[in-house]
Design a protein around this nucleic acid. Structure first.
Lengths: 213, 213
DNA sequence: GTACATTTCAAACAGTTGTTTAAATTGACT
DNA sequence: AGTCAATTTAAACAACTGTTTGAAATGTAC
């Protein structure tokens, strides 16, 4: 009983670390089981397949994060007047930082995994997201639309995907960017620093005035 | 003589298409030579290795684009007063669209390849870029700094990388986004439409006011 | 046509991948 | 202790990867 839990957990811990560092398809099951110090076959025994292991790794965080976000969105939606866009975006900060309770460096790991999920196995994560958390995402889109009444829905669609790209790419190359910032500007930036730098950038981009032509 | 040129070109054409669609590491040499209708060994014969083939595919576009951009940057730098940020960013539009002369759908293909290069083989493209075109990039950064005198250099560093993420991610998932836009908003958007939508978003994000705290 | 270099080709190479198998081990309960 | 299920293990599987080889074919120049 306790050994089963241990093996599963050891696999998840090693997998998320390697997945975040080098991507899903570039990480082999032998690397994972090697780092976790378990037998190769135990991945298939406990999770079925590599694909299902990837889902399990993501779910460990999504199961905590998404209900939390849903709750925050509902709260904001219940207020009568439209909310400031920066305020809407800031709602992500705390739930994301609380992922550090799930796991050591959980926030960073999850955001890197998110980046990998979108750039590695193209399309799958997008489908998975819409399918499992479509309701929650709809609430967020509604909040943004209320904050930017001047923007047509299609423009908001594009700009939210631009923003997703910013987040996902920044987090996937998080380590490289931190290193460059440290070398070129003597800056030590942690994950919450990056998140707080992102908010004004994203808010300004999403709310940008429409082009004239 | 003409057959050699033909084989090399057929390989490059098939490779760039497959690389753009499914990424570098996910594309096998057998897929490429199959689509190009050439022998498997001819890739190694003409290009040496898969890695060198990837570089050759990128170089076909970079060799045209980067000198063109360098020239535009120098022109803008020679004007005495600082340029509007949107104007600086708009400088990319024409040179990018001219890649359609290099190849059918060249602009789209190149931008997708750029996205793949940054998300697929992590870090390599960044190094390659800085090494070969560092001078040109420095000119661009200088232009942005002149446009945004209120922003410290480190902040511009982060925001330019945020912007790179937006571009790279948007272009890598270009097809998916086009499909969704078509389905949800009855929109038909071509590559130049996406580029022109990007400019105001990026300009507003980069020039966003600094957070107070 | 003969000689020579360039290019193509089928085949094999050595390595990796995710997954499966069947036997061995461990655990829990009577 | 004995029974049965849950788990671990080493080994093998088939499929795939990029690359190399040496012979066949093709092109070029005298």
């Amino acid at each position: 009983m306790t050994s089963k839990q241990n093996t599963q957990q050891k696999i998840l811990d090693a997998a998320e670390r390697l997945f975040a560092d080098t991507g899903f398809s570039a990480t082999s099951l032998r690397q994972i089981t090697g780092m976790a110090e378990v037998n190769l076959a135990s991945v298939n025994y406990h999770f079925g397949s590599k694909k299902e292991l990837i889902q399990a790794v993501l779910q460990r965080y999504l199961a905590v994060l998404m209900p939390r976000l849903d709750q925050e969105f509902s709260l904001l939606l219940s207020s009568q007047k439209p909310n400031d866009l920066s305020k809407v975006l800031s709602v992500f900060v705390e739930p994301l930082l609380e992922l550090n309770k799930v796991q050591n460096r959980g926030t960073t790991l999850f955001l890197q995994l998110l980046g990998r999920g979108y750039t590695d196995v193209q399309g799958h994560l997008r489908w998975f997201f819409n399918h499992h958390y479509g309701r929650t995402l709809d609430k967020f889109v509604l909040l943004v639309q209320q904050s930017c009444p001047a923007l047509p829905a299609s423009e908001i669609f594009w700009r939210l995907h631009f923003s997703l790209g910013t987040i996902v790419f920044t987090m996937a190359s998080n380590e490289a960017l931190k290193d460059i910032a440290a070398a070129d500007f003597n800056e030590v930036v942690e994950i919450d620093g990056v998140i707080k730098r992102l908010i004004p950038y994203l808010a300004a981009g999403i709310a940008a005035p429409l082009q004239s032509d």
